[in-house]
Design a protein around this nucleic acid. Structure first.
Length: 310
DNA sequence: ACGACACTACGATTCGTACT
DNA sequence: AGTACGAATCGTAGTGTCGT
């Protein structure tokens, strides 16, 4: 929560939504909002499945003010709490919903257009679907959503500008700051990422990882980086956009998916080769990542589609 | 900027069971 | 034998805070 006046006014006025219905054909603008609003939901029927919202692509930015929502995104579960901003593209394999007995207060903007989709995709690739924005960016989002809801005579150009300004705020907050990060620091993190990749890579004729997998725990990685565990964890998360443990797990799952697709090794052998000694636990992790068991995944041929998406 | 410490949520592991 | 899944337990990761 930022406590800025636009947000306070929005909350005081209560739930509101505006559908921006401007004739599509004439404008050809590359960023155009379709709807925006503010809501407090308590009804557990609130549930949006990204695969069941039609075939026309659009992007959603939804910022949580209070309560708690849930997001399943490419098989991973996120809890959306106050201060979290969710990004999703439709159509896509995700679902966000409210749990029974819960409440969720948020504002959102949905938009379509070539540039809107391109930027949203870039942000998702870089940062994932759940973000922590600066107060300044949240304020910008709130102001733009408020303007979209309340402007009595909204022209196509003005609507497009508000949506684009929203995306630019996200861009500056999340992508530009990466460039500004101290080069030495990012170099250290990059070398740790390389180390993780090296650990999980193995030669075609020997499936054993090149180094012991216990070198991939956070304490060992921190030691390698020459930093304390707590500081390393924070720095890694800030630089990469996910925690070191999460990053290692993602790399393990990517490698496992590749081995399932490219070899006929048993699930047990693949679990061992990615550094997970218990095939039962491996199956559990794999299902969590891909929404399929390893054997189902192998039969489905999904790896071709999942390449580079984890 | 970084380390040290403490706290807590949840991830990792083990075990038992069921199914093919 | 290989795999999947649920429950229970324990350890670790993430994070807040404070000090240097």
């Amino acid at each position: 929560m930022t406590g800025n006046s636009v947000l306070c006014d929005m909350q005081a006025r209560g739930p509101a939504m505006k559908v921006i219905s401007l004739p599509r054909g004439r404008h050809q603008l590359h960023t155009m909002p379709t709807n925006a609003g503010y809501d407090r939901v308590q009804d557990c029927t609130y549930c949006w499945d990204g695969r069941r919202r039609g075939s026309t692509p659009f992007a959603i930015v939804q910022h949580t003010l209070a309560g708690e929502g849930n997001l399943r995104f490419e098989g991973r579960h996120y809890r959306l709490r106050a201060g979290d901003t969710m990004l999703v593209l439709v159509p896509h394999d995700h679902c966000y919903w409210l749990e029974t007995g819960g409440s969720w207060e948020f504002f959102w903007i949905a938009m379509y257009g070539k540039e809107a989709l391109r930027l949203q995709r870039a942000l998702l690739d870089e940062r994932g679907p759940v973000l922590r924005l600066s107060d300044k960016s949240i304020e910008c989002l709130a102001e733009n959503v408020d303007a979209l809801i309340r402007s009595p005579e909204l022209t196509a150009g003005r609507a497009s500008a508000l949506a684009y300004e929203t995306l630019m705020a996200l861009h500056d907050d999340l992508l530009v700051q990466d460039v500004a990060l101290d080069a030495t620091r990012t170099g250290v993190i990059a070398s740790i990422q390389n180390h993780i990749h090296a650990c999980l890579r193995c030669e075609p004729d020997t499936l054993a990882p090149q180094v012991e997998d216990d070198e991939l725990d956070v304490a060992s990685l921190a030691q390698l980086a020459g930093l304390s565990r707590s500081h390393f964890s924070r720095l890694f998360t800030r630089t990469v956009g996910m925690s070191p443990a999460q990053y290692v797990l993602n790399e393990r799952m990517k490698r496992a998916a590749h081995l399932l697709e490219a070899t006929d090794l048993s699930v047990k052998a693949i679990a061992l080769s990615v550094g997970i000694h218990d095939p039962n636990y491996f199956s559990k992790l794999f299902r969590h990542a891909f929404s399929l068991s390893p054997s189902e995944f192998r039969l489905s041929g999904l790896y071709v589609n999942s390449r580079g998406r984890l």
